[in-house]
Design a protein around this nucleic acid. Structure first.
Lengths: 368, 368
DNA sequence: GGTAATTGTGCCAATCAGCGG
DNA sequence: CCCGCTGATTGGCACAATTAC
């Protein structure tokens, strides 16, 4: 009995290995298709032991541990994440859902997010929703199928409170980034929009004596736009400026949107003291519109997000720094803490800062 | 015997279903954990039939097909991609490997890539290598574990010919994007760099009578930089300009890199007729350096890639359009055709165009 | 007889070849 | 021939069982 079983033990794996070699001999002479079984056979241990070594758990002697590791690298073993996910009902994957990859700010955000998640051993499954809530629902569905451990989401414009509710029902950890939703308190990481808008307006009112303000950019109904405008209004109220001195020109959040909204503003005949823009991209577009009409030196402009090129702009763009990359890191940390079973501060509103440059009318800094 | 087994057959699924309900009763009252088996039971068919309906293959009567579909949506079924991948040895996933997510050009590229892949039913597993070949190797390893169907890669600076060779050995379909490697002919989609550099230089020489040129930006050893410079040199040679009239200032491909290289150029005392930049970001940084020294109106500048903000720049930046989003679409198409078993044109070099604006010295276009 | 080290076995969800009404 | 089912298979993990000292 013992002899026979031990023979089987030896023969089985070898046969299996040979078949595999034959099956894809010229396709993949190296690591492709090497299974934990192959590793175990090569190291002369059971699949279970090999698994323990792989996951660095359980009690395995240092000697065999070393031997198994050697076999792994010798065979070029790559663990099959799908198989693990099947068994665990979860994977080392996080769904990342954004509204527009072409937006430079999201690039910076993603950069930070990806770095932190990768460092923790998670891979990013990326989806671009084109700011469409239906596409967002579809994305979540698909990502659920991939058994993502969690979701980092820039919610699409028009997302309702049902969305976070449904995620909660699913028991799927998530964080919203940079845009939060009205009503339901949901996990969130982003800069304080009210403060950001307030910061911009206060600077323009207090140091530049602005009395008429235009808020340009951001689609109607987007809460972050509402909030930033709220911050602007508060600054105006605090300074005793009538609310009627604020004019809104919503637009798509992009350079093209800013250009068009800027034209509309100019065509309207309005000549505000400042144009507070919803994003740096919008500000870039607005500047183009102003220059086309020779107005660039007459009206102050501020941006939002402080993207890398803002400081290089002519004139250097005064902007509200939301520190996109850092925000990405924090969103990752938020999600990772949830995944680790902790419960992090639900809503993390970072405090934005104003990066004062020249587009607001301030003098150039001396260069060190 | 028969009775017993048939009883087991009936009881098993119900018991399993009940256990599932209990296990996560308050966690996920809806679709989470619904399996194809549950769908089959609900529709009164076998798992296999349900599978056929799911994948829209095989011969299933329209009646049962409809019934199964109804059960799927009734239960909120979400197919488990991991299980499918385990069985198929491949997933509906593509690995996307880039060097720096924060680079706006890659944002545009990814936008196109993701859209096309998503339309074909593939999800993107995203990795940012920080332009490090070792991180790139690690990324491929990890992505292999996820059983990606293919790879879309912006190769890191310093990648050797061994890299595509190893991918080929693995039998893993891939495309390189925007940067190609010396030597080995590998699947590639990107704009023709020699032509791009040539286009910029020719314009400056032919219409602006430039005789001294500086090429700024791009790290040493990057082939796309070498090629663009090659194109510049050819234009110079064609015009009878000595090769010594070309000066190189390599830098990191970013605004910060451009700013620093621009300063170095200015400090060197050189005052070329044109500065041809390796990317728009670099051009933005160079412009800042020029403005700091009051030189912005004296030296012409061209960018590369024609990112969205290039047209909004002051002065509007003359650039080489490589059509990032379109490139992303084409890279996706290349990969998808490989996956479909076809063999697309291995190296697809799109022809870049020059977007003539004012930074080169051309007059402003009349506005329609 | 107790403890560290290792192993066997059943599962996870979907797919596919082969079989039968 | 059309339709649908059975049973085996995929790679890794968890738990109980088992060995060795």
């Amino acid at each position: 009995m013992i002899d026979r079983s031990s023979m089987e033990m030896q023969v089985q794996p070898q046969t299996a290995a040979r078949m595999k070699c034959m099956r894809r001999a010229d396709h993949a002479p190296n690591g492709a298709g090497v299974t934990l079984n192959d590793v175990a056979a090569h190291a002369g241990v059971s699949r279970a032991t090999a698994s323990l070594v792989l996951r660095q758990t359980g009690r395995v002697s240092e000697a065999t541990r070393e031997r198994v590791r050697a076999s792994m690298s010798a065979l070029g073993y790559v663990p099959d994440r799908g198989a693990a996910a099947l068994r665990n009902h979860t994977s080392n994957t996080v769904g990342v859902v954004v509204t527009n990859l072409a937006n430079p700010f999201f690039g910076e955000l993603l950069h930070g997010l990806e770095k932190s998640l990768a460092a923790a051993g998670f891979a990013c499954l990326l989806v671009d929703t084109s700011d469409d809530p239906d596409a967002q629902d579809a994305a979540v569905r698909e990502l659920r199928g991939h058994k993502v451990a969690g979701l980092a989401i820039v919610p699409a414009t028009g997302t309702t409170a049902e969305f976070p509710a449904s995620l909660q029902e699913l028991g799927l950890p998530f964080v919203f980034m940079t845009r939060y939703l009205p009503g339901t308190p949901a996990p969130y990481v982003g800069a304080d929009d009210v403060l950001g808008g307030n910061l911009a307006a206060r600077h323009m009112i207090d140091v530049h004596n602005a009395t008429t303000i235009a808020y340009v950019g951001g689609p109607i109904g987007m809460l972050s736009r509402e909030n930033r405008i709220g911050g602007v209004k508060r600054a105006m109220a605090d300074a005793g400026i009538a609310a009627t001195s604020l004019h809104e020109f919503p637009s798509e959040t992009s350079g093209a949107g800013g250009l068009q909204a800027g034209r509309e503003l100019i065509d309207s005949g309005l000549r505000p003291d400042v144009i507070i823009c919803h994003s740096d991209s919008v500000a870039f577009g607005v500047y183009r519109a102003l220059r086309l009409h020779g107005l660039a030196d007459d009206i102050a402009v501020t941006g939002y997000d402080d993207v890398a090129t803002a400081a290089l702009w002519e004139p250097p763009l005064t902007s509200i720094s939301t520190h996109g990359t850092e925000l990405g890191h924090r969103a990752a940390a938020h999600l990772l803490e949830q995944l680790a079973g902790g419960n992090p501060q639900l809503v993390q509103r970072t405090t934005p800062e104003i990066a004062v440059r020249q587009s607001c009318g301030c003098p150039a800094q001396s260069i060190g």
